[in-house]
């Protein structure tokens, strides 16, 4: 498991080995929705805000 830092609250976040670029996850500490923006090395950013045409 890789450790990365939440870009919002600096909490440690553990990532599974099969984590995908573009994957969404929530920070357990601050609740922010985050996106994996890179996997080699792992990088995190706040997830984009919901857009008008999002959804099914």
């Amino acid at each position: 498991m890789e450790q990365v830092i939440c870009p919002v609250c600096d909490a440690d976040i553990g990532l599974q080995n099969d984590t995908e670029k573009g994957e969404l996850l929530d920070c357990d500490d601050c609740g922010s929705e985050l996106e994996i923006t890179g996997v080699n090395p792992y990088a995190l950013a706040e997830a984009p805000q919901t857009e008008e045409d999002w959804g099914e």
């Binding site: 099969d18 995908e20 573009g22 969404l24 996106e35 997830a47």
Partner: peptide
């Protein structure tokens, strides 16, 4: 675009098949 839980589950299922190559 974003990989939600649904996309993750689908990718895991595709990758479990020996005869499939996935291009993201």
């Amino acid at each position: 675009s974003l990989i939600r839980k649904e996309e993750k589950l689908l990718l895991q299922e595709f990758r479990s098949r020996s005869n499939v190559e996935i291009e993201l």
